[in-house]
Write a protein that binds this DNA or RNA. Sequence first.
RNA 1: GCCGAUGUAGCUCAGUUGGUCAGAGCAGCUGAUUUGUAAUCUGCAGGUCGGGGGUUCGAAUCCCUUCAUCGGCUCCA
Length: 646
Amino acid sequence: MIKITFPDGSAREFKEGINSIQIAEQISPGLAREVYSATVNGEVWDLIRPITRDAAVKLHKWEDEQGKHAFWHSSAHLMAGALESLYPGIKFGIGPAIEMGFYYDVDPGEGRVITDSDLEVIENRMKEHASRNLIFTRKEISKKDALDLFRKKGDEYKTELINELQDGTITLYSHGDFTDLCRGPHLPSTEPIKAIKLTSVAGAYWRGDEKRKMLTRIYGITFPKQKMLDEYLVFLEEAKKRDHRRIGRELELFHFSPKVGMGLPLWLPKGAEIRQNLISFLTGILKKRGYKIVTTPHIGNVDLYKTSGHYEKYGASSFQPMSTPQEGEQFMLKPMNCPHHCEIYNATPHSYKELPIKMAEFGTVYRYEQSGELHGLTRVRSFTQDDAHHFCTPEQLREEFKSIIDLMLYVYRVMNFNDYTAQISLRDPDNMEKYIGTDENWEKAEQDIIAAAGEKNLKTVVIKGEAAFYGPKLDFMVKDAIGRNWQLGTIQVDYNLPERFNLTYNGSDNQKHQPVMIHRTIFGSLERFVAVMIENNSGKFPLWLAPDKAVLLPISEKFNDYAANVLEILNNSDICTLIDDRSEKIGKKIRDNELKRIPYLLVIGEKEAENGTVSVRKQGEGDKGSMKIDEFVNFIRSEINREIAN
RNA sequence: GCCGAUGUAGCUCAGUUGGUCAGAGCAGCUGAUUUGUAAUCUGCAGGUCGGGGGUUCGAAUCCCUUCAUCGGCUCCA
């Protein structure tokens, strides 16, 4: 007998060699139907793997990451099996479970393509296989045998993977006629996979290396119940409606014109109004916190970027330098503001008593992003950063860093922006040549970031390999409507630019010292920030940000004169932008959310025209009663103040 | 940049195997109507079917090419 301990601390004796599914069955048959994998002594195992000694066991259901993971990973195998039966000779790369579903990278073979229209056939074959209730079996295999097996199949991808594995750790999983190199774990059988949807097909480089062959990646998702799949598909449909590209068009916020150029957003009046509101909101906060606003040109001499090191790193993949009538003179569109700010710092001598110096600019920058990478407002070729740089003494670094975390959290809170992940982005230890600067400085900077985040009790995740080439950073990541991750705010420590630009200050010892530089943005870019705000709120903006704060609706043309009067007063109030809508098809506009996104609806009828009032309705909340015009202005003003003061 | 898909009016989309296939709804503009919040009625106007080449007696439809968009990959200072 062996002793199995459960997460709640309780323990039971079982026969040696029992497996997790049998344990679950003995607890309750209902449970057994719902578990998909188990953690045995800290390792995630198949349910059918025998347990031969005392162990701590945690059973995983759908609700657990590990449960879903086993479910989707098994689904990837199910798909691979279907593919092999449909496309004999097809070769397989890797096929993991992901956050939502799974994929498999495959090489269908020379001259064969798999496209969207093939997915249904594959899906049907998967369903057929799944319904046969195929058992997943696990087999340990020697490296030599594994190599022989996959060489015989002619699968160079799997043999490459096996070559990198340690002999004695290699396992195969099979179901039906299909066998795959795999670490597991898997479901006991294909039986629980009831609902299957292959979502898309895409290209993906083998091992993520753009110099290697592009495989075909097939994405899919599966569920234990059809209803869950249906709900997921509904969710995707709903998410499409929140897409900022769609809402941006509906609300006439921004526009892309191929004539202007891809990735170059045109801000329409209403979008520009939102942008402007964001800028003035943040400017007010920055001034209170001791930032100095600066302005720098949109171009700079190539030498500036050679000095900063950006030219060497990104020159070839940037908008190329423009020349002038002067021989040998070259300028570039600025891809970042930092070098300009360094030169501003250098314009005057500095004492330690002045530091930290905080320089801010809403700086528009231009980056030649790869054409396939452009995406609405979230990835563009010209965008405006709410950029700022802190120049401080090494001793001040941590405090400065913490103060920026405070600022960031403050702004996000005011904006009611809660759904973000703070990510500490460090160097990739396997790729150290990507980075410039001394190990010592990197070490120091990384420690400072981790410490500052810790002292601020910020919940963070640490990701290696995501640092900037000149320094580590703390990034604030958010998800868009369909779950893609975007970086908004970022705080970056930089010892490199101060050195390259020879920045100095006089210390109390009357010696020259080098300041440390912190780069930071809060919104990231106005473009991306607006996009994320739109997707988070389905295009509804808080009152203070909204381009139109209210819509004016006269019941009848009889009141048009009065309405025009009201409109003028309110629009001139400098606080309340109104749109005038005398259309009779107001119902349709409301249904289409065109007007529902505007915070207030003002109705004018006989009574209102007589009394010089408007009937105020807050969208989604209902009647606020009748108000005199100036009452309404004051009301809006106080509402805005309340929102911003928070 | 790479793989795959898509491109018909401002928007959403129909257009069967190449042959009255240049259409509809919404938006817009005309008139009429005046209604307290999810579609009032009439009429009109709108497109070199993304651009360019080709095949054909004939191309929105087939082929090539180019531009743009979408989903991924790579990248993201």
